[in-house]
Amino acid sequence: MASPDKPINTDVPEKNAFALHFLQTLSNLRTQNPFNSPNKTNDRVTKIKKAAYVSMARAAGGTNRLWSRALLRRAAKEDNKIVRLRKKRVTWQRRRRNQRAPEVERLRKLVPGGGGMETSKLMEETAHYIKCLCMQVKVMQCLVDGLSPK
C-alpha cells in the first residue's frame, strides 16, 4: 500500500538538471585531462561513467532517495572525500536473511544502497532508479549525438 503522502513514482526525473551537471563534469574532465594526455582510455571511461551516475543521483534529488544517497556516498568514498549527507531516515533492516528470495537478493545488489532496505522499499526505490536510468540513457544518447563530429 502506497501511503497517501508519498505516492510511488510521481516525481519525474530531472532531465535538465542531469544534463547540466553532466556537461559541467564533462567539461571539467576535459580541462583536467586533455585528449593528448597520457591517461588511459579506461580511466577516462570510468570517470565519465562515474560522472554520469553522480549527476543522475544529484538530479534525482540528492538526498531524497535512498539509492541516490548510496550512490553519492559511494562516489565520495571513492574520491576519499568526506561528504556529509543529512541524516534523513533510518532504514529499518529486517532480520530475515534466511527467507529471502534469490531474485530479490540479485536486485538488491543492483540497486545502490539496496542492501539495507526492506523489500517493499526496495521495490519503490527500484522503480525510481529505473526511471532515472532511462532518463540518463536518453540524455547521454542525446549528448553523444549532439557532440559527435559529423
Binding site: 564533462l26 577516462r44 571511461v45 565519465i48 561513467k49 547521454m140 549528448l143 553523444v144
Partner: peptide, 8 residues
C-alpha cells in the same frame, strides 16, 4: 560513456 569519452 565510452562513446562520450571518444567524443569528449
Amino acid at each position: 560513456s565510452m562513446k562520450l569519452e571518444v567524443v569528449n
